[in-house]
Simulated assay, not measured.
Amino acid sequence: MRILIVEDNLVLADKIAAALRQTDHAVDMVHDGEDALNLVLQETFDLLILDLSLPGLDGIEILKTVRARQINLPVMILTARGNLDERVAGLDAGADDYMVKPFELSELEARARALLRRNIGKRNPYITVGKLSFNSVDRSVTIDGQPVSLTPRERGVLEILLLNISQVISKEKIALHLFGFDDEASVKSIELYISRLRKKIASGDVEVRTIRGLGYMIDE
């Protein structure tokens, strides 16, 4: 999944990004409010982690614009503004979650996972198809209880297909959710990941189908 961190504290932003990348997410960072809003309006993200006290444009104004444009994007506010009125204002402006600094990274990661699941209607962290099971918490994949070794990219492609079960997902859409700005991305590489993934999960009674001219899908 692709996550945008909007945080003007570069050290903190790097720390959060490193933790999220450890769990296979593509992470982009921006440190200015106006730049953040332009990115959100132009690019596709699965989660926005948003500070409020930003140069250029306040986080609340970014949030209000995102909601006014009806962009389906989960937003977690991460800020030092922690009194009751500020928390209520943030949630009323359209935030899906509100965390106050200082915070524990493990809690932020857990809240991020919950928001990502909730956005696509998946409350259960486990997704099972055939003999294959995917755990979105520890990122493990098993077939008949036995671990399957996947690269982060292969695991990311599998997650996107499982979260959109029985839906055709184009190579372009997979790339949008799989790669950040700093990644070397190409639609051709998606074909390679799909090919490798098929071989590794073949014993799990799970088929990654190619829908010619449209993309890929896994049937429920």
Rank of each mutant, 00 (worst) to 15 (best):
R155E: 11
A68H: 06
G156D: 04
F103K: 02
N135G: 06
Q146A: 11
A89L: 02
G130K: 15
V66S: 06
L132C: 04
A68D: 14
K101V: 12
R118A: 15
D97A: 02
I127W: 14
K122C: 10
A112P: 08
L105H: 12
L116S: 05
A89E: 15
D96S: 09
T65E: 11
N72W: 02
D144Q: 13
V66W: 02
V75H: 03
G82E: 00
N124L: 13
A112N: 03
V148A: 13
K122G: 07
A89Y: 00
Q146F: 05
G90C: 11
P74K: 05
L108F: 02
P102K: 04
A110C: 06
S106R: 08
G90A: 01
R113V: 09
F103E: 12
A89M: 07
I120H: 05
L162V: 06
S140P: 14
G82T: 10
T79L: 03
R69C: 06
L116K: 09
A93Y: 01
E104C: 01
L73N: 01
I127C: 11
T128G: 09
V137H: 10
L73I: 08
V66F: 04
V148L: 10
L108W: 05
E154K: 00
R153C: 00
I127S: 15
D138N: 15
L73M: 09
V148S: 12
V148D: 10
R139S: 15
A80M: 03
D138Y: 07
P74R: 01
T142S: 14
L161P: 02
P147I: 09
T79F: 04
D85F: 07
L108R: 01
L158I: 03
R67P: 12
I160T: 08
Y98E: 00
Q146E: 14
S136E: 12
L78M: 04
P74H: 13
N72E: 05
A110P: 06
V141P: 08
G130C: 10
N119L: 08
N72C: 09
Y98L: 00
N119M: 09
A110R: 13
P102R: 02
A114Q: 07
R81N: 15
S136R: 15
D138I: 07
L163R: 11
P147Y: 10
G156S: 00
G145V: 01
